[in-house]
Design a protein around this nucleic acid. Structure first.
Lengths: 343, 343
DNA sequence: AGAGCTTGCAAAAACGTTTTGGCAACCTAC
DNA sequence: GTAGGTTGCCAAAACGTTTTTGCAAGCTCT
């Protein structure tokens, strides 16, 4: 246990240069893929650096390059509304992936205090770029960042500015998959708990639902649009849908929170799930898996979104003239008891 | 709108020195409270710096001082368990406050991927110190950080190492307040949903509950200890407590999630709250305020905890010989319908 | 075979602070 | 009135990179 712990300084770039028999310029160029050097030298330097366990000093690097070495993560959700409450799990996974991706490239990721809702403005703070998680229209902090010429990447499209590079969940195809599955399981009248169209995902989901109904010759059945995603709200919306003369035999609740609420609504009404009513949700958080019955849910890929956003942003920071490559990330339907056909 | 936007470089320390008629050494010393300089000069430099809008470069400062300019926030909760699910609101507020506090002192706060649960280890990453949120015994990352000689401050006491400086919620007095209130409202048999003793708060709450009962000559009524804080768990624990021959007339569920679960348990049993059963919880998240009936809850001070932990840590980083001043942060009981006496 | 590229690398100048060491000037005490 | 201590400040050397500039050596033309 008491391993002798020599000071064990980490090697500097100078030492790598010496060991490789080149100048520090060459080491820097080789490691950053910048200057004009032969492939032989480049790989040689890489090897030496690795064998020495060299890790450049983030501070020196930033000082030298005139950057800050920081990227900001801005989550409207963190502002004050606890709307996206249930989606903590999603946020957690996204944040972890983004942090790791940033760290790998020598950048630190700072989670900024959310929207303008909470009191004091954030202390003036400089970063090289910003990632906006599901930006909401009219976000002031985002507009300010744009004004200052900060590089921005959003997860979910930014409805205020479609020039902002984005990485987004492929909600249109995801929604199709959910509806197809419900129909295949025998559902004839599939209803939607509609979302207020303040996010690109709300637009995609409701839009695709309507398109799907049109394509399949079904009558669209939508609740009034909900603005928060809590179980309480989901319960009310489901009760509304189910208390009509000709109620649906399946409900798509496009967030797990809403889906869990719909589940308790069904219980209250004495409806068997999936016998009398099929249920599907979206996000696939832990609670969807452990509910009784298990809730069929569209599994998203927060890790890919988080890491992807960071990668895009870092490319832009490295070279602002990088062509923008927006990207949709596919989803995966996880079928559970709540939509399993009896057969 | 199209305000002419001159490049508007922020002033360097050199310019402050020139404007103040002193050397940059003196400016640095004055601003950091370090060297030997007269009070007159010190305040003069401060004024000049402020009037010029001077903000030191975090990178240069770190490079010069040999620091990293980073502090890590480590949350066991973020690891993989979604146990502390409902407490998102608490976490959000704590994180925002900590981030702001760090930024104010020129440090960036990085939220580290959680426990060893999730796959890949975090990329090796250097910080000047670490804040551990409610550390759980046997946390490897924490042990590793300690090994490396990192400064650590925990929120909630670290059961593995009581030498770790901490800032903690005053759960003992908070629990007393809750129980006193319930008793004052007429409760005769107050039960506790017990928590597994893996955290200092679990120890404090269950310990104080037992002490209070002893002091007041009451019989302690505890559920078996729960390990996660979800509503489902709270419901089960409450059902267990309420289905005994001589059931309690009040329950303290020491987390909002558990409290909400207890509330639905009461509903299922047809018990009126607060008429047949009084309920109190802890954390005072948004859902406690909006439930029906409103849930009496012990309001914590995540902002004070977060900012306080950062301040403590920065003091230690600045001067490791700073005497440790552990601190309890008081709570405030928010009384709502769920424990209001009929009278 | 010399003008003009291109290629591969190195020397040195930033980047903006903190920190160390030194030097006057001023006190104090004998 | 002078040795020894203190006070107030400054010059200069780090800190560890990136980036700019320069310079040979090797090609490709004509």
């Amino acid at each position: 246990m008491a391993t002798s712990r020599a000071p064990e300084r980490r090697p500097r770039i100078t030492e790598v240069a010496a060991a490789a028999g080149v100048s520090i310029t060459t080491v820097s160029h080789a490691l950053n893929g910048k200057g004009r050097i032969s492939d032989a030298t480049r790989t040689h330097v890489h090897e030496v650096a690795r064998s020495l366990g060299y890790r450049p000093s983030a501070n020196a690097r930033s000082l030298g390059s005139g950057r800050y070495g920081l990227i900001a993560l801005k989550v409207s959700m963190l502002g004050g509304s606890s709307a996206a409450f249930v989606e903590f799990d999603y946020f957690r996974r996204l944040l972890n992936a983004a942090t790791s991706a940033a760290l790998e490239h020598g950048f630190a990721l700072v989670t900024l205090p959310g929207g303008s809702a909470d009191g004091e403005p954030p202390p003036d703070f400089s970063a090289d770029g910003m990632i906006a998680i599901d930006p909401e229209p009219g976000d002031e902090a985002l507009a300010a960042a744009r004004q200052r010429g900060l590089q921005i990447v959003s997860t979910g499209r930014d409805l205020d500015d479609d020039a902002t590079p984005w990485i987004d969940t492929d909600h249109r195809n995801g929604t199709t998959a959910v509806l197809d599955h419900l129909a295949a399981s025998g559902a004839k009248r599939i209803a939607l708990i509609a979302l207020e169209r303040v996010n690109s995902f709300a637009i995609d989901i409701t839009g695709e639902y309507e398109d799907w109904c049109a394509r399949n010759g079904c009558e669209p059945i939508e609740s009034r649009a909900v603005a928060d995603y809590s179980a309480a709200t989901g319960r009310e919306a489901a009760l509304e849908l189910l208390s009509t003369p000709n109620p649906p035999d399946a409900i798509y609740a496009p967030l797990d929170g809403l889906g869990l609420g719909a589940l308790s609504a069904a219980r209250e009404l004495g409806l068997d799930v999936p016998g009398d009513l099929m249920l599907a949700a979206c996000t696939d958080s832990a609670s969807a898996a452990t509910s009784k019955p298990g809730l069929t849910s569209l599994s998203l890929a927060p890790e890919e979104i988080g890491a992807g956003a960071v990668d895009m942003l870092l490319e832009l920071i490295g070279d602002p003239s990088t062509p923008i490559k927006n990207r949709y990330v596919p989803t995966k339907l996880v079928v559970r008891q709540s939509s399993r056909s009896a057969s």
